[in-house]
Simulated scan of single mutants.
Amino acid sequence: MFGLTGFQRDLLYVIAGADRPSGQTIKSELEGDLGDEINHGRLYPNLDTLVDRGFVEKGTIDRRTNYYAITDSGEELLHERREWEDARLDGGF
């Protein structure tokens, strides 16, 4: 749960909330939410890390476009993180 960066968790949330988004769709969604431009050199290595760790599945839409889908492990990680955050918020306020 704590082995990911905040950016990687943000990527997981975007992927979890979409139906097999492309990298470009993920990039656009995050740029809209964060208000900052995200370059490919930051996006794709982080997506590859999530794939390598088994939190995201990568597939092919066409010869130039991949899709990303959250795995059961990725969903479980997000649920664990939310529970951890909720426990901190409930106890701290």
Results as ranks from 00 to 15, higher is better:
D86M: 09
I26C: 04
E29Y: 05
D48L: 12
G23F: 02
P21K: 04
E57Q: 12
T65D: 06
L78I: 04
H40W: 09
G17H: 08
E57N: 08
G91T: 05
E31K: 01
R53M: 10
T25L: 12
E83C: 06
L50Q: 01
N66R: 10
G91N: 11
D62T: 05
L4P: 00
Q24I: 09
D33G: 09
A87V: 09
F93M: 11
G3Q: 13
R63G: 13
G59M: 03
N39G: 07
S28Q: 15
D72S: 10
F55K: 00
Q24Y: 14
H40F: 13
W84L: 12
F2N: 14
P21M: 00
G41D: 07
L47H: 03
E83G: 07
L77E: 04
R63E: 13
G74P: 01
T65L: 08
N66P: 05
D86H: 07
T71C: 05
D86E: 10
E29V: 09
N66S: 14
T71P: 05
L4E: 02
G32E: 05
E75G: 09
L34H: 02
D36L: 14
Y13G: 06
W84N: 08
K27R: 15
R82N: 07
D52G: 03
D19I: 08
T60Y: 06
T60N: 07
R42D: 13
G54Y: 01
E76Y: 10
G74A: 00
F93K: 14
N39I: 13
V14T: 14
G59S: 05
S73L: 11
N39R: 13
D72A: 11
E37D: 12
I61L: 14
R82S: 10
R88N: 11
D33Y: 14
L11D: 04
L43E: 03
L78A: 02
R63V: 07
I26R: 01
N66A: 08
L77Y: 04
W84R: 10
K27I: 03
E80H: 10
G59I: 01
D36N: 09
Y44T: 08
T65P: 01
Y44D: 03
G92K: 10
N46D: 07
A18C: 07
W84G: 06
G6S: 14
H40A: 12
R42E: 15
G91R: 12
S22A: 08
T71E: 04
E80T: 07
R88K: 12
D72E: 12
E80A: 09
E31W: 02
T71N: 01
D90I: 10
G74H: 03
R53F: 06
D36K: 09
L12S: 02
S22M: 02
Y67I: 00
R81Y: 15
I26M: 01
L43T: 02
D72Y: 08
K27T: 01
A87I: 09
T65G: 04
R63S: 13
H79Y: 10
E37R: 13
V14D: 00
G41S: 13
R9G: 00
L78H: 01
D52Y: 03
M1G: 14
Q8V: 00
G92D: 12
L30I: 01
T71A: 05
I70F: 00
D19Q: 12
E37H: 11
L89Y: 12
